[in-house]
Design a binder for these strands. Structure first.
Lengths: 334, 334
DNA sequence: GTGAAAGCGCTAACAG
DNA sequence: CTGTTAGCGCTTTCAC
C-alpha cells in the first residue's frame, strides 16, 4: 500500500503549484479552464482525496457537527441521530455522535470535548434541563440548539415536542370515555419535558379525573419496584398513563404480574410511540412525538447559527400526534 | 468571547517554549519538575485545552475511530454503537458514527469518507456481506473489524453471534414440544447472518419439522404484504419463527389481523431480543444476541490492529442466549 | 491567472 | 533539561 497522495503530489502531476490545486478544490473561479482540467485529471489519476482535517486547521472553520444525546439505545434518540446524520451529510458535514449516559458530569465533559474537536455546532439533548447545559455551552462559546429536554429562556434555540398539548389530548380521550382515576407513570421531576407532560395532563383534566402520579426515576432497574410499591399502597386506577417508553415497559410488567388486562380491566395510553405498540395485541394508544421534525428543525436552526445568525434564542414546540388504537375503553359511570 | 488559548500562549505565560509545553502535555519524562509545574499552572490559568486535530495532524496517528451500521434506529445497532462509544472513550478516542441506511452505495461512500477523516480504524456492519465490504476496506488500507453480517475469509477479523447454534436451540425447543410445521420469517437471502440462522434451524431439525421459509426483504413497508401473501397461500403453521426483530413486528400484525393467538393457536419465538418482548402479555421467547460482547470483542480486536498486529484475520462467533418465556406451547401429537 | 511564502496548532529531531 | 528549527496537509495573502 503506497502513501496517500497529498495536494503536492497532485500539483506536481498537473505541473502547477499547490495553491492552484487548492483553488480548484474549493471551486475558486480565478483559475483558467485549461489549468482546472489538468488539475482535475491529476486528481482523478492519483485518486486524490482532500484531508478535511488539515484543510479546516488552516481555515479555522470546521466541517464537523456534534450531537449529544442521553442514551443511544432509546429509539427516540436513535431516530434523532439518524435524522441529523442525513441532514449533516447533505451539507457536507460529518456528524460526531456521543452519548451522555444520563450523566450530568459526563455531559459537561462531552461539551468540552466537542469544543476541543472544534465542532462547528452542537445539537444537544440536555441530561437534566436546558439551563445548566446552556451555561456550559456559553462557556465554550459553542453554537448549539437544545432539543427535547428544554425549558426556554436559555439564550439558545430549543426544540421540543408540545408535550402539554399531547398529554392534554390523551386526557380528553380519557375523560370522554368516562375515566375517574388515572395513574401517571413519570420518570424524573427534574426533567422539564416530563414536568410539561404532567402539567399538560393536569391542566386538561382540571379535577375531572382524580390524578395520581408516581415518579419512577431514570434507573431502569429500579423503576419496576417503585411502580409496584406505589400500586400496592393505592387503590386500583381505571387508567394507566406512562409518560415515557421505559415507563410503559415496567407498566406492562406490572399489569401482567397483577393479572390486570387492558383495555378491559384498565385503560392504557403512552406518551411516546414505537412500532411495536401498534403491532402487539391489543395495540396501545400513544402520543407520538414528531421525531424527525424535531431533528430537522434543530438542525435547520443550528445551521443558521453557524452561518452567522445572532437572533435571540427561540423556543419552538412541534405538535404531537395522538394514535388511537383502542387501548382506552369506555368506562360506565359509577 | 476571547480567542481560545493556543500552546504558544501557554508557553509564553509559563516562560518556556512551545516544545516544552508539548512535552508536558504528552507526559514526556524529560521535563524538570519545576518547569512542569509552572506549565501546568499556566494551562490551568488559561483554561487551555489541546487541539487533538492539530496534534494528530503532525503526529500522523489518529485519535478517531469510526463505526458504520446499517441503521441507527435498530436497537441492536444502537446498543453496538453505545458499547463502542464507551470503549473508545476509555482509550481517549472519539467515535464517529455513521449509518449506511442499508445502502450498498452509501456504504462505499462512507468508507471513503471515514478514510478521509483519517480514522485510526473502523468497526463496520456490512450492508450485504463481508466480502464486498472487505474489498472496499482493503482499497483504503483501513484497519477494520467486521461485525454482525459477516462471512469469514475476508482477511479481516469478523465478529458475530453464533446464529447457527442460537436457532438450533430454538429448533430443539420446538421439536421437544411437538411442533410439526414452522414458518421461518426471514429478511434477505443475501445476508450471511440470515442465511446462517436459516441453516442452523434446518440442520437442527433435519426433517423432523416441516420447515417453510418466507423471505420478506429489508424494506419495512413491503414486509407485511409479503408475509400476508405467503400465509394466504399456505396452510397454517403451528409455530412462527421470525429471524429478525422487524420480522417479529410484521408477524405480530398478521397474527392480530388473522385472529390467531400465541401460544395457544400458534407458537412464537424470535431471533433477537428487546425489552418489550419480556414485558408484554404473553411474553415472547427469544434468542438474544450477546450485543455488548459483540461490541467489546470487535473493539478489542480493532485496537490490536491499530496497535500494529498483523495476525491473519479471524472469525469469531459469540454464543447467544435463549430466553424461554412461554410463547412456545406444547402441541399434542396428531 | 498563478505561485512563493507564511502560517493554522501542534510535534519531532536535534543542538545546546 | 530546554529551545530552535522544520514541517504535518492545507489555505491564504500578495506579489508577479
Amino acid at each position: 500500500v503506497t502513501r496517500k497522495a497529498s495536494i503536492r503530489d497532485v500539483a506536481e502531476a498537473a505541473g502547477v503549484s499547490a495553491a492552484t490545486v487548492s483553488k480548484v478544490l474549493r471551486g475558486d473561479p480565478g483559475v483558467h479552464e485549461t489549468t482546472r482540467d489538468s488539475v482535475n485529471r491529476a486528481i482523478r489519476a492519483l485518486d486524490y482525496r482532500i484531508d478535511p482535517l488539515a484543510a479546516n486547521l488552516r481555515r479555522g472553520q470546521r466541517s464537523l457537527v456534534g450531537v449529544i444525546v442521553p442514551d443511544f439505545q432509546n429509539p427516540f434518540f436513535g431516530e434523532i441521530v439518524a435524522t441529523l446524520e442525513s441532514l449533516a451529510d447533505a451539507e457536507g458535514l460529518a456528524l460526531v455522535a456521543m452519548s451522555s449516559w444520563e450523566s450530568d458530569a459526563r455531559e459537561a465533559e462531552l461539551i468540552r470535548k466537542m469544543n476541543d474537536w472544534r465542532v462547528a455546532g452542537l445539537v444537544i439533548a440536555p441530561v437534566v434541563s436546558g439551563a445548566v447545559t446552556a451555561g456550559r455551552l456559553a462557556q465554550c462559546g459553542l453554537h448549539a440548539t437544545l432539543i427535547d429536554r428544554t425549558d426556554g429562556g436559555t439564550g439558545y434555540d430549543s426544540i421540543s415536542a408540545d408535550s402539554t398539548a399531547g398529554t392534554a389530548e390523551a386526557a380528553r380521550a380519557l375523560i370522554a370515555s368516562g375515566h375517574r382515576r388515572v395513574l401517571l407513570v413519570a420518570s424524573s421531576r427534574e426533567l422539564p419535558n416530563m414536568a410539561a407532560r404532567v402539567e399538560g395532563f393536569l391542566a386538561a383534566v382540571r379535577g375531572r379525573i382524580e390524578t395520581d402520579i408516581v415518579w419512577c426515576g431514570r434507573d431502569r432497574a429500579a423503576m419496576g419496584g417503585i411502580l409496584a410499591a406505589h400500586l400496592d399502597r393505592t387503590s386500583r386506577p381505571d387508567a394507566l398513563f406512562p409518560l415515557f417508553l421505559p415507563g410503559l415497559i415496567v407498566t406492562l410488567r406490572e399489569l401482567r404480574a397483577r393479572g390486570w388486562h387492558y383495555p378491559a380491566g384498565v385503560s392504557l395510553v403512552c406518551f411516546d410511540d414505537a412500532d411495536w405498540l401498534a403491532a402487539i395485541d391489543p395495540p396501545i394508544d400513544a402520543v407520538a412525538q414528531p421525531v424527525r421534525d424535531l431533528g430537522r428543525e434543530a438542525f435547520r436552526r443550528l445551521l443558521l447559527r453557524i452561518r452567522g445568525s445572532t437572533a435571540p434564542g427561540e423556543s419552538c414546540l412541534l405538535p404531537c400526534h395522538f394514535h388511537r388504537r383502542g387501548s382506552i375503553a369506555a368506562r360506565s359511570a359509577t
